[in-house]
Nucleic acid binder design. Structure first.
Lengths: 209, 209, 209, 209
DNA sequence: AATGAATGAGAATTCATTCAT
DNA sequence: AATGAATGAATTCTCATTCAT
């Protein structure tokens, strides 16, 4: 019974190192300064190895973006721990916004790549996809909130709410003080809750049965 | 009585042509594909002339970006024609969103430069300032809507509303069909109106005296 | 009886201004930095006018070089004032070297163009010609010194002596102190006098009849 | 027991090829005509490789120049083989001049870079240093020739003699025929020997004990 | 699999020169 | 004659990608 293929493990670690290096280099030098050679050097690998894992620069950048969006994609699911889902819906929404806010404030690399200078066309495409996915993961909440809303509308509402939160979190991150950042997040909560209230078919105080 | 120095006029026209060409090429080929030579060719000028007006590619792109933010800055003021300001506040807000939506949909170059990848740190700073200015131009409306709101809160609310509209207009522009784009804009109106309703001290139906 | 064509006078002044500007710009920016446009700007003329007087950049540089070499060409003749030519030959030689030394130390522009950085191929060709001419102007002295020396040898000896003086004057100009510069000139005199003494057919103390 | 790292050896050879090519191209096309692409082509390398070894054109030219000055620095030492040092001093001096003359006539690239135009200020500083070093390597001969000459004067005399030889060798190289070039070298020997004879404290016929 | 030297297409930019005004 | 905006060929240099070792 052989243990896990050591080569695979090493490969995985190397890919991780390369992505980490890419995030750092993009952050430090900007998108244009982030040459594949510089990234390989930072990752203490050879440029040849980099190309073993990523067919070209675009693929590398795409993977870099996916790494964060994947985390984001799972974020909503992870926020919905049992105790939380039972809360009245406005508080539930606020908890989710808090979870995203924490992500934005914690992941410096994320901000660096997404908002810290050069946002490439590839990254934007990724962001769009990620947005769609995140919105999709928010749809179940909408089902509870507005059961009679047609599926198509539900997707739209989820997307609009998600996108709004995203934009306001960026504004929050750019704030000059922590206090101001917090106030922006408070307003974001108000924006989304007011909006969803339009569609809500259950009272704002109802807890999950 | 000679008319305006023809050379200056020609220069201005040429700069205009170059910026227009740049917008088109960036839109078509992306930032990296937009070579200075291609831009000059599209503008039916020589590459030398391009460099007479813009010291380097970054400066050209910067000018292109500024051109749009400057237009945006004045947009709100221009939307507030007499007939409009007398409308009930929710309709007034909707008119303003329509004005911004038209701008986003009309100015292909705007989208190209701001969302077409490669937004430099310098440009982001510009965008931030522009956001602040646009929000500032929206504050008078808030005074009418919520006279007792403290100035500091007013600035925050204006900024949050502005940023939300901006984000949703981008989403709208990315929509695959015109119909979908319109629905996104409708939702944007709902988001902002619901949010502002929280602060409104006058009825949604009140017209200006 | 009309006075001198004023246009010609103005042209001459303009050419002078351009050459002066060229010398300055070469000195300040180096040969590569000395663009024709920069020279025209410094001369407060248009680039078009510059090309009216000089068919191309090479011609301008050539004229610039000639301006100094022409002065050099006449220098020896001017040094031979009556009182000087009567001196014993070694002192005469020393006087000539002093005259050249003064020229080198006085004409900062000359040093700038010739030794201050970028010496172009054209300038070198000029220098070679000038060297030949200056050597030629020194030949009459050799006739007095060594009447029986064949003309061909005389040309060679004159050239060798001239070139040697030139090289040592450059060394002198590069000296870190005035005192050191003077000592180099003293040695230059010794070098040339010792050399010419080989060919001298008249005593070192003989004055001209 | 592996032999020298082949990569290093190949690199060294390539650098050598590039420098050789640069010397040739500069000689043929002049400094301005010597494009980096032309040099790479001549060296049968890619332009990319050229830039791997030299950060820019100036650096390449600088390296080319240094290569020759370094060779020159060692030249005098190498000329003083046992049989030569025992010669009477005037013959010894002549042998040294012959060695330098051979260098000048052999190394076409040397002439190209140093006298082919575009000698940068940086390069001039190099040349000055090299001159000092070469003069220093000649001082031991002066000690034998004029033991009582103070050290400071010795340095000056060595420098003056060295510089004179250098200037006359350039003149020699520019000569239109080999015969003429040889005659210039003969005169150079006379110039230096006559000059040094002024300081000589030992007979011109004395051989080294 | 890993390495990194080598490649070369292609980009930005300059500047001598022209020519319509 | 004078002007200087316009031209575009030519140059330097970068960097994604390949491939022999």
């Amino acid at each position: 019974m052989p243990r896990k293929n050591p080569t695979q493990a090493r490969s995985r670690a190397r890919v991780e190192r390369i992505l980490e290096a890419a995030a750092q280099v993009v952050q430090e030098k900007g998108y244009d300064g982030a040459t594949t050679n510089a990234i390989a050097r930072r990752a203490r690998t050879s440029i040849g190895s980099l190309y073993q894992f990523f067919p070209n620069k675009a693929a590398l950048m795409h993977a870099l973006a996916l790494r964060y969006t994947d985390e984001l994609r799972g974020l909503l699911g992870r926020a919905l721990v049992p105790g939380v889902t039972a809360l009245p819906w406005p508080q539930l929404v606020e908890r989710i916004i808090d979870a995203f806010a924490e992500f934005h404030h914690t992941r410096a690399g994320f901000r660096a790549v997404w908002y810290g200078g050069h946002v490439s066309a590839e990254l934007l495409a990724c962001a769009f996809e990620a947005g769609r996915d995140i919105a999709a993961s928010a749809e179940p909440l909408l089902v509870r909130l507005a059961p009679s809303l047609p599926a198509k509308d539900r997707a739209l509402v989820a997307r609009v709410a998600t996108e709004t939160v995203g934009a306001l979190l960026i504004l929050s991150v750019q704030a000059e003080s922590q206090a101001h950042a917090d106030r922006v997040i408070d307003e974001a909560k108000k924006v989304v809750v007011s909006y969803l209230a339009r569609y809500a078919e259950i009272p704002a105080s109802a807890t999950k049965p």
